[in-house]
């Protein structure tokens, strides 16, 4: 959790996370929450973004402690697999709940 980006506990938008809220980062979290773990190229294809854009957002999420990376060999080339950390999954779920509260779902 990023305490600086969250509202107070009594606020209905408690759990809102500015780090996750950027559209591409929200989509990355949604994908990783569903897939558990996904290869970088698959995330790129699913979200239809360039490698550099995805890399930038993954770096932000990694630095926040929300995403972790694992390197593995595939077809003699090294591939990067991404997954949400436990903290990242909790932050994403809390952010999703905050968004639902805001739009009244």
């Amino acid at each position: 959790m990023n305490p600086g980006t969250r509202s107070s506990a009594s606020d209905p938008t408690d759990g809102f996370d500015a780090t996750i809220h950027a559209p591409n980062r929200l989509r990355i979290c949604a994908l990783l929450d569903t897939a558990d773990e996904a290869e970088f190229a698959v995330v790129q294809k699913q979200l239809d973004v360039s490698a550099s854009v995805l890399s930038k957002h993954v770096t932000v999420l990694t630095e926040a402690g929300y995403v972790e990376q694992r390197k593995a060999l595939r077809d003699t080339r090294q591939r990067v697999w991404l997954r949400l950390t436990r903290e990242g999954r909790q932050a994403y779920q809390a952010h999703l709940a905050a968004l639902r509260a805001i739009v009244g779902l």
Binding site: L26, A30, D33, T34, R100
Partner: peptide, 15 residues
Amino acid sequence: MAELEHVQASTAALS
């Protein structure tokens, strides 16, 4: 939210 559901659905299909 609709966009998130789309991402989740296409990822679930992959899984």
